[in-house]
Every structure is written in structure tokens, then in C-alpha cells.
Nucleic acid binder design. Sequence first.
DNA 1: ATCTCCCGCCATATG
DNA 2: CATATGGCGGGAGAT
Length: 822
Amino acid sequence: KTPLKPAATSPLVLTERQSDCQPLTTPPKPKETPPAEPWTPTSNLKMLISAASPEIRSREQRKQLSNSSSEVLQAKPCLQEHLLGDEYEKSQPSRKEKSLGLLCHKFLARYPDYPNPAQKSYICLDEVTEELHVERRRIYDIVNVLESLHMVSRLARNRYVWHGRQNLPQTLQALKKVGEENKYIQQIQMIKKREYEQEFDADCERNEEMASSFGSSEQSEMSFVELPGVEFRAASVNGRKYKSLRVMSQKFVMLFLVSTPQIVSLDVAAKILIGEDQLEDLDKSKFKTKIRRLYDIANVLSSLKLIKKVHVTEERGRKPAFKWTGPEVLPNIQDTKLESTSTTCSAPISEPTPSKEHCSKNLFPSKGKQNFTRHSSLIKLVKSIENDRRKIQSAPTSPVKISTSASQSLPVFPGTIAQLPTTSKQQLEGQSKTAEEMPMKCALSSPEAVPKPEAPQQPVPRQPLGACPASHSSLSPVILPHPHSGVSYAIYLHPSQAHTVTTYSPGFMLQPLPCASVTGIKSNNLKVLNKISTEEGDNQITVAEPTKSLAAEERPEVKPETPSQQRLKRSQALQENNLIKKRRCDEESLDTSSTFFPSGYLIPLTHCTHGNKADCSNKEKAGICSLQHPTYSSPITGVIPVTAPELKTVNIPAFHITPLNIMLSPNSIAAAPVLSNSCLNSSSTSSAPNPSSSALNFMLQHIGLIPAGVQVPANPVLQHVPVSSQAENISHSSGNTNVQEGKNPRSKIHFFSPLNESAFLSSLQPSAPKEPQEPQTATENFFRTPGGPNSGSSLSSYSDGTERISQATLCIPQRKLEVSED
DNA sequence: ATCTCCCGCCATATG
DNA sequence: CATATGGCGGGAGAT
């Protein structure tokens, strides 16, 4: 079955090997003979051959080798002296020699990192498989991840174009952006939190609460991020298809790009990638599979030197993780107009839109029919919304773009005009099951591209629709201008989401969209301090994450506690209050130049799946909904981004919301409080039609008035959700980076990583027993940077090998991490 | 025993 | 229909 032409190749290989290796006299006899195995001759052959190939051993790092030399290809100790022994048939081709990582090295060695743009280099899979002596299947693994990074793109069967690292910067940037939008940080926190809880509670409780929990499917699941200029889809070829490995790869990378210590443990990544996972269904097998895939991806990323393996040790023990070693990604770029290549995913539209960002496409696994249906409904929804606000344009079948120019009503941003995202959609089917629906998003960046109707600022070229492929018509795009960055994003939501809105939106409030996981979370919390030790090679880095609990008072002060102490506290905390919030401020957020805007697309989602719905609705009425699952929501994002000076007040025209104070200012981050009543009231009173409510939420979130994931009910009933910022205690301890020593005398550095948590959410909880505790203070604390001097910078890094992290923005609970490299 | 992850069956997509 | 792709998970080597 396997089409191989080993026979012909083998000789070549041998020669190759000899030449490389050195004057070897011993001919590798291993060829086919030794293996007693009954396997197919070809396979054996291949194996042997591969083993023989020169570079193979090079890779074997044993530790030191690995990182040091960039290409070690030549260094191969031809250790095969023992070939003679021959009987050790297989000894040679040890499993490692056949590793994907090694194979990938070989693959990469064939092409230049930065090929001449002028001339494309093509990759023929047949050749590659032949030359590298591998099964085709393996090449696909490699190519798929390379594709996810836009290092290659597929042209046709068997043919790919090699781009090398040319696009890497843009790709990473785009991925980072999407990662931020997906709120991976929060998700990570959530997962960690959960784990933490489980550990301790072991027996106490747990379990069942989740029954009610929603399965929140949350995030946008399968979308592939594309780069505009790169790889247009050669017509037929690309279509859609499964791209799960590609998508996984991208998401995996996103995790690194958004997390602060750029270290991601495998299990956390797997959980997030599973997305739906939360169900607690100990879906072991699924998890295992995911892990396997992650290893595959990690192997190639490692070959690319984008990541390296490390171990993170927490109280439970150490677990495998990977650390980003690739280039730092700049938050955003103001790079101006790029070549306006249209990404056009396929759209017939001629408009050369300069979209430079990324475009995510959705792969719809499900059948087309549904899409259609949804599609239409979606459109309606969109239109209505659109009407509410300004309409820019929409085509019946095509995605509609909506952009609001805030200009009139939102005077807010001084230099720039703020635009608010206007639309949100959700999907019709509540029943959506699993992955079927995935929202698709397409982001367009390039300011120019932003269509702004009124925006006086710049004449906007026409709308970028062209950028999105017709195929995506089912999606409705939303364009969000990002004030600071100047980048606008178009987000396409999958119709399915739209539905939800329609149906449920009326009453809803806070929904944690991203809930990726959490189902039955209790509101307990954690006080957490986990420690993780990192040992990096020789160095160890520890990160301490301060934790914060609502009961601030209780907390003693600062100082790192021993784990045992921490636990005690934790238990106390639990009892006293269930809520502990952790909050994380995004580093960038503080940064004046902060780039992002909370992504809106997640917001509107409400995923109450079937059974859940009922619960949800009820709860909602109660106003509880959000409360129960505070954890899910991801607080932070919404708040962060805008720097104070820039914004003072915002009016949201459509809703008639009166001017609000924006809480963004770092110092005064009373976001939550602000939001709280006044905002709600005004909005509600003003009358927002349901459809609008979702839009409203969307807007607010984007604007930063409310945390992403939180929705403000249009419905007055819920209005009074008390929001108190309990940011209080946030940063107790923290702050300083210490260097400790771990087992290794080497240097350890402590840094804090934000655990972000749902401080906000918690604050929102209505029933929260606690009174708002001095919000002011709280807020201040929030933003206060413990690090003092350091604080300004977020995590800086690594050039010298040391990592310094300042928490600039964070006031977050921290954990200690220990990372060790192998 | 756990961590890695190779191998290749077999469902799908593509041509 | 023949292939090209690539999901997936068993199970074995590495530790």
C-alpha cells in the first residue's frame, strides 16, 4: 500500500551517509537482512535507511546539544561502529531516530529559512517522502504544522509552496491577537484554578455541582487563522477540510503567545484545545489523543526552535510543558498599509483589501444545510441590529459588516475615533452540540480597511468584504476598530451563535462565554498559591503568583507562604467565602500602547446547551446565573485595554446610554463599580431592544466597560447587579522578584504571573455576601504594581537568559512555578 | 509505571 | 474510482 520506492533510494542514502559521515569502512549492512521481523520489507528498509541517514543522529541532543548549535547536522558521531555486531539489528534505528522532530529537521534542512520571495520554491511531497525516506503520513504531520505557521502553503495535490520563516512574524502576531481574543489567558487560569481546587478538595465536595453547569462550549473553535498575503487559496485546493492539526497547532502557539511566562503545560493546552472538555467527562481517551497530537506538534515546533521542552513542577508533581523560545511578538503593529493583497479567501470580490491581519476561517464540519439555515437567520439578525445602529452594508448572502462609528456619539477617543462593535450574533440552535458550530472569525486589520461610515478621520476605502471569502458568507463579520492599535478586526461569527442571541438574549446577563471549562465550579476559590518550580537547565525560575481572595482582610500579608501555609489559608478562605477572585491584568493592558481590545466575538455567546438552558434561564431570572459560574467568565479583558487618559466618557448612541465613565484608567479601575448600576440603569431605561442588548454587551465589552464575558442585560430586572470591585487585596505580596534557589543552586528567579481570575466576575455577583469592600482601594490595589520600579515592564526577557518579569500590570495572584528543562 | 509518540489503519477529501 | 490527506488510538520504546 505504501507507495515507496525504497529500493532505488536506499543506495543513495547509503552513499550519502558515507560521505557525510566520514570514511566509514563498515558498510551498513543492516539493510534488510537483520531484521527478523516479518514486517513488510519495505518498511524495514525504510527504517534502516532512515537510520543510516546522516543527520539523524545529529539531532540527538542529550541536552546540551540541543539548544546550542543551530544546526547540528554535521555533528554525528558515527557511532555505528558496532554495526559489525549487526545482530543488534534494530538497535540502530532506535525509536528516536525516527522521531518526528528529527524528520522535521531533515525536512527543514532542505529549504532556506528565508527563501527569495521573488521566486517560489515548491515542495513536492513525493520527492520529500522519497528523499527522507519516510512514510507519507509523517510528512503530512510536518507540513500541517508548517502550514499553520504559514511557512508553507498548499498549492495542489502533492504540492506545497515553501515560504520559510518569511511570514512568521505576521503569523505570530496574528495568532497572538486571536489568542487574546479567545481569552486564553483566562481559560488557562480557569483550568489551573480548577485543578487546584480539585487537588485540595479532593474529597470535599465537588462533583456534582457541575451537573448544572453548562457545558459551555465556548470559544471559537475551529478556525484557522490566515494571513492575507500569503497563500491565497489556490482555487480548489484549499477548500476546507479538516484542519484540525493545523488549527490545534495554531492554538497551541497562541497559548504561548498570550501566557505570561511563556510556558504552557501539555495538559493545560490539551484541555483548552479540547475546548468542550469541561464536561468533566473524564474523557480520558480524548485527552490522551489530544496529548499525542500535541506531542506531534510540539516536535515540529521544537525543530523550528520555537519552543523547547521543560517541566513544570507544581505541588502535585512535575508535568511536561513547553516554553516558547521563538521570537517575541510585538503586540501590534502599526505597520501601515501593506501591500494590499487580498486575502480573499475566495471571495470573488475584487476589492483588494488590504487586510493584513489575519483571517480566520471556520471550518464547518457540519453539513452545509445547517449552515444555510443558520445563515439566513443570522443575516436577519444582523440586519436588525444593523438597523439599530448604522448600517454599513450588507448583502443578503454575504457577511455583513457593521461598524459603528462612534464619531458622533462617542467622542471619546481623542485622536481617534472610537468605534464600537456593533453586532453580535449568536447561533440559533441552542442545541448545538459539539463542535459543529464554530464561529468563524475573520479579522482584518489595517486601518485603512476599516470601513467607517462616518468617521471623519480617514476616508475609508471601501469595505473589505472582499477579504472574506464568499464561502464564509454564512458568517457575519463584525468589524471592530481597535482604537489604539488602529487595527480593525472583522470578526465573523458563525451563524449558529447568532441564534442563541436571538433566542435567549433577552434576559441574559452575564455569561461567561469562554467558559471553556468549567462546569461545575463552585464558587470557591482558591487561594492559591501553587508553586511551580522551574528549572531551566541550570537555572530555575520560580514564579510566584500572589493570590487574592475576597476576604482580603484575612490575608495576612504578603510574603510567600509555604505551601502548607497556603493550603491552610486556602481552606480558610474557602470557608469564609466562596469567592475569591483573582484577577489578572494583562500586562499589556496597562501599557499605554496597549493594543488590544477585548475581542468581542466571544462575548455574545451564550452557551447554554440543552439541559443547561433551562437552568440557565432560571438562574438568569434569579440573576444568579452569572454568579454561579463566576469562574467562567473572564473578567479581565474587558477592563484592561484602554488607558485612562484616552477615555473618559463614552456615549453609546444606540443605546442611549449616557456617558459612562470608563474605568479603564489604570489607577482607577473601578471598572466594575462603574459599570454597575449606573451603567446598567441608564442603559436599561433607555430602552434597548433585545437584539440590541446583545449588541450592547458587545459594545460594552469592547469598550471595556464591562469585562468580556459579562453581559449586561438589557432587561432591567437584572440591572442592579451589584458590582463591587473587590479587587482589594490583590496584590499583597507580590511583587518582587526574588531569586531563589531550588534544588539547583542556580539562580531562580521569581516572577509573578498573573493568575487572572475572575475578580470581576466575582465582583459582579449579586448575592455576594460581601459588601463591596472599599472599591477604591481595591481598584487601586489592582493596578498597583508591586514590583515598583520594575513594574513598568511586563515581562522582559530573556536575552540574557534571565527572565525578569515585572508585573506591571498585574496585580495578580501568583503562583510559583518551577520549570525545569531537561 | 509514566512519558513519549511512532505506526499505520481507515475514514474522508480530492481529483 | 484511485489517490491524497489526515484523524486517531494502540501499543511499544524511553525513562
